[in-house]
Structure formats: C-alpha cells, structure tokens
C-alpha cells in the first residue's frame, strides 16, 4: 500500500519556505503564488496563498510530501489544514523583520496543539542582514514557553543546512 508522510514548513513571509522546499524536492515545487497587493511588495512581488508542495520519493511505496504554508496570519486556516497528520513543523523566521520573537510567538501559539503531539524545529534566516535577536534570545524565549526546540541560523537555499533541520526533527521523533 502506498504511504504518504508529510513535513510542514511555515513561518514569516519571505523567510525562505519555498526555497527550503525547493532544495529538497524531487519534483518542481508546485506553488500557489499570486501578485502581492500589500506591504509585502517591499520584499517580493508574489506570495503563497494556499500552499507550496514538494515531494521526495523515499522508496517505491513511500513519498515524503513537503508542504509550505502561506506566511500571513490571515491564512492560518491553511496552517491547520496543512499540518493535520504531519510528522512535524519547521518554523522559519526572517531575522531582518522588526520583531522576530513576536513573529515566532504567532506560529508557536497557532501550532501549539500540533507541536504538543509532534515536534517543531526553528530556522532563523537572513541573519546576515540582522544578527539580532541572537540564537540565545530565541532559546531563552522558547524556554519560557516550555518548548526546548532546536534553533539554527540557516540559509534556506543551502541544502546541507535545510537537511540539518530535517535531521534534527528525525532525532527528536526518534527519541520520543
């Protein structure tokens, strides 16, 4: 019987969710991008409004589906739809935004019931543009939320670094 398992990439607009999925996917990433009409235009011209979808064949019977969510909170109904039954969630935070910790909080709050049943890994991107908050700040914040997740500064276009996120998630699931 064919089996499909999934991992969800969520996080702020422009944090690199689509890029991260692209580095891993065997197929061209299926996107639902549309033209931007709001302040996001300062960062990019198009944005995901339903999902990104990539796929990795694990063996003849098993496919790993990689789903990217829309970043904006107004699409949070998609977050619930896409995370149902997933192994875990990778939360990608753009460190060059005004308040990355508050951004993280939005995703932790919305995904809290899901994370309690699975796991989360936090990926901080664009640290080359802004190195504040530091990793230590993120860890401190996660500690206060009783969520001792891994946090890594990564470049979403770097396959090795994206693999570290997957590898850490597998390690957490393996010892659970």
């Amino acid at each position: 019987m064919e089996e499909s398992i999934k991992i969800v990439f969520t996080g702020t607009v422009g944090a690199g969710k689509t890029a991260a999925i692209r580095t891993l996917s065997d197929i061209p990433v299926v996107s639902t991008d549309v033209d931007v009409t709001d302040e996001v235009k300062a960062i990019k011209d198009t944005t995901t409004v339903a999902m990104d979808y990539g796929e990795v064949a694990l063996d003849e019977q098993t496919t790993l589906a990689l789903y990217g969510t829309p970043g904006q909170e107004r699409f949070r109904y998609m977050w619930e739809i896409l995370s149902a039954g997933a192994l875990g969630v990778i939360i990608m935070i753009d460190n060059s935004r005004p308040d990355p910790i508050s951004d993280l909080d939005i995703y932790l709050e919305n995904f809290a019931p899901f994370i309690a049943e699975s796991c989360a890994v936090v990926a901080v991107t664009h640290s080359d543009i802004s190195d504040s908050p530091s990793l230590q700040d993120f860890h401190r914040y996660l500690g206060s939320k009783q969520m001792p997740c891994p946090v890594f500064q990564v470049d979403a276009r770097d396959r090795e670094q994206v693999l570290l996120l997957i590898d850490s998630m597998m390690a957490i699931l393996d010892v659970a």
Partner: peptide, 21 residues
C-alpha cells in the same frame, strides 16, 4: 467576510494550480 476573502484567494490559486497541472 475577512476569512472568506482569504479562503477565496487560496481556493482560486489552488484551482489555477490544479488546472495548470
């Protein structure tokens, strides 16, 4: 209506992706 607005955009984009596929 706000939720309906965002859902409308998701649906139409998915529809376009499906017909494109």
């Amino acid at each position: 209506v706000k939720r309906l607005a965002t859902m409308g955009s998701s649906l139409m984009s998915l529809g376009t992706t499906i017909t494109g596929e």
